[in-house]
Write a protein that binds this DNA or RNA. Structure first.
Lengths: 217, 217
DNA sequence: GCCGTACCGTACCGTACGTTACGGCAGCGG
DNA sequence: CCGCTGCCGTAACGTACGGTACGGTACGGC
């Protein structure tokens, strides 16, 4: 349950970052079938360097996942005047951001390899993606939820329950369908619409004020 | 979008079914790293027979997935007297069944290999699992939802929207966390509790009668 | 100018595994 | 009893790929 990204050991040369970006691109294109040779060729570096820098294939994959994770850092929302409008806006923005990340080719590719490697792995990629995916989302969202509860705008007993419900309302079957290869067109407009719907549904379930919210559509 | 399981070509010998069950067991144990040799040894059959029956490794995997899919057939719920109680019971039973399947080792293993193979595949396993997973769930649930709407118990415009919301409320982050290797204890009691919660939340959002449903906990 | 370091490109090695081939055996129709 | 068929067990083949070794080059310090 520790933070999986070793910030202290982030001693990455620019050259090495370029290599990891190349590995990312190949991961998106070829998935888990990428070879050390292909990475070396794409990045115009020698395999010897790959092994010196990252140890072995697993090390390269791990470094690649962590490198990507380090790029998408949280943007904390900390409004001064907190009311229903800013809570709603925060939730919707959060949902929108999450759907955008989730449906990106890089996220899909990384989740695919992590799922494929989960279970039988030493440098468990699954744990890393878990840590930087759902768990990171929870860490980012929970302060907002608890602020909403403390200001009387939301009503729930377990923060985790509330978060997971919001997760379900936002993600629904989108992620698993994308991972399984379903062609699912997520336009900016549809994401905005879905974020709003999820937010309104969440407020209808956990909002402390009006109960007259119309759920569907 | 056709039914992926060729029922017409389901000419499977008992021997072949045994072989596929062995392959399933190995898939659960070793994931995608199972070898043709290991399947042959586990099933006490020759590799020659494997290739004669299933063509190649991909064919074996495909047949295995389809074989498992053919085992979990739908149990249609078609009550005579339809009221809020039977609707609620149907939804909750559905959610419970789905969570049980979802968290089973076989489902996790199959979804892992399907996700791993998705995208760059000819016999696309992802499509098969998609067809027998989320899509099958939708086909099974939609009649119940539309019956609820036609009898005035539910209120929604798009059946698909209602289904996907229910999916989100039931599954939440459970599936992705399991696929990524998170140790997630789902006891019968917790599944029952979650099914009830999801059902009540769904009714709070789409139910046409009372709006006073308490969302959380 | 000389050496050490870092790195590229490439050739090479070992192995795992998909795929094929073959010998042997059991059952069965004639 | 003979031959055919289907299958098991295993050996053999080919290749892809992870990992290693090595020659060649650029560069910075002395």
């Amino acid at each position: 349950m520790q933070l999986a990204v070793d910030v202290g050991e982030n001693a990455l040369t620019e050259r090495q970052k370029d290599v990891l970006d190349a590995a990312l691109a190949l991961l998106v294109e070829a998935g888990d079938t990428l070879t050390m040779t292909s990475v070396a060729r794409r990045a115009s570096c020698s395999k010897e360097s790959l092994y010196k820098w990252f140890g072995d294939r697993d090390g390269l994959l791990t470094a690649t996942v962590q490198w990507q994770a380090s790029k998408v850092r949280a943007v904390p929302v900390n409004p001064e005047a907190f009311d229903l409008a800013s809570l709603t806006a925060g939730l919707q923005r959060f949902a929108s951001d999450w759907l955008h990340v989730l449906s990106g080719t890089i996220s899909v590719a990384l989740n695919r390899v992590a799922v494929g490697h989960a279970g039988s792995d030493k440098h468990d990629l699954g744990v890393i993606v878990l840590e930087n995916g759902p768990f990171a989302m929870a860490r980012r969202l929970k302060p907002l939820l608890e602020l909403g509860r403390d200001t009387g705008l939301l009503h729930f007993y377990e923060t985790d329950e509330a978060f997971r419900t919001f997760f379900g309302l936002v993600v629904r079957d989108v992620q698993i369908r994308l991972l399984l290869g379903d062609r699912l067109e997520l336009t900016d407009a549809s994401i905005e619409r879905d974020s709003l719907r999820a937010t309104q549904q969440f407020l209808a379930l956990y909002g402390a004020q009006t109960e007259a919210a119309e759920g569907g559509h």
